[in-house]
């Protein structure tokens, strides 16, 4: 078993516990052991708190990383925002002057950031440590014929030099993970578009999501395959708002990838929290 320090962040454990449940079910079946990172805080988020004070943001991120260093483990994340903050913190702290500044702050609480841990998103851990073939072997309920529109979101892939997840212009990881479940991955015309959740104005995200949902609808898929909880909220609650505003029917159920994997591994539909979604993936009930 390969061990990682698990950094669940805020959004998934607080708003989407079904996603956390699925992750905790799925990983041991794939030979990945996770250890809770006790005493961790918000990563902190790369949109709101970072826009107030980058140095404080970096200091809190370094504290979280130092907790994993104490355990001698790499960090596994399940949220694109946490992955972005922690990966960027590691990148920035390669600078000795900045590292000293941050360690001066950490010194106030008797901690030090050393730079000995790596941060990896759960999707890349499954890709690199488990492999698509072993994911395929863990499936007891192949999702043959299920058409899944892929939405990567922004922060998992970019900036690619820092995130080091996949090629942002032609990523493969989501498609291959979906195909490992027996399903068909579909790249719709606006697959690369941002969900707009981190934009602090009304009109830009509304119009952008409308365009995005229009091409998803045109692709006639069964569900949307999601990897980011923030994007997920845009496609669940947000999709309802777009439907109302534009007076058009948009009703494609978003599904977080690891819930889909858990379902394919045989965990019953009712146990996976799909009923609390605004758009329920009832199409899965045929499997």
């Amino acid at each position: 078993m390969k061990r990682f320090a698990f950094f669940p962040g805020c959004l998934i454990p607080a708003r989407y516990p079904a996603m956390e449940f699925a992750i905790r079910q799925v990983l041991p079946r794939l030979g990945i052991e996770i250890v809770d990172l006790e005493g961790s805080s918000c990563c902190p988020d790369p949109i709101y708190f970072k826009s107030k004070d980058k140095l404080s943001w970096l200091a809190v991120a370094a504290r979280n990383l130092s907790l994993a260093e104490d355990l001698g483990l790499d960090v596994v994340t399940n949220c694109s925002g946490c992955t972005a903050t922690l990966s960027e913190a590691i990148h920035l702290l390669e600078d000795d002057i900045l590292k000293k500044k941050v360690n001066d702050r950490l010194g106030r609480i008797g901690r030090e950031y050393k730079g000995t841990t790596r941060v990896r998103h759960i999707a890349t851990v499954v890709r690199d440590e488990v492999g698509y073939e072993r994911v395929r072997e863990s499936v007891v309920r192949p999702l043959e014929g299920l058409k899944v529109a892929i939405h990567y979101g922004c922060h998992l892939l970019k900036p690619s030099k820092i995130m080091q997840v996949d090629n942002p212009d032609n990523p493969q990881v989501m498609e291959r993970l979906v195909e490992a479940l027996g399903a068909t991955a579909i790249r719709h015309r606006n697959w690369y578009l941002c969900c707009g959740k981190a934009c602090q104005t009304e009109d830009i995200p509304m119009n952008m999501m409308h365009d995005l949902l229009t091409t998803v609808k045109a692709a006639e898929t069964d569900i949307l395959g999601m990897i980011c909880p923030t994007c997920f909220s845009q496609f669940d609650y947000g999709q309802m708002k777009i439907s109302k505003k534009f007076d058009e029917v948009f009703d494609i159920p978003p599904v977080y990838y690891f819930q889909l994997l858990a379902f394919a591994q045989g965990i019953p539909y009712e146990k996976l929290g799909f009923d609390s979604q605004r758009f329920k993936p009832e199409c899965l009930l045929r499997f």
């Binding site: 922004c154 970019k158 900036p159 941002c194 981190a198 934009c199 602090q200 995200p205």
Partner: peptide, 12 residues
Amino acid sequence: LWQCTNCYNCHE
């Protein structure tokens, strides 16, 4: 500035 979507395309 608040219109920025934080998508990181410009960084890329």
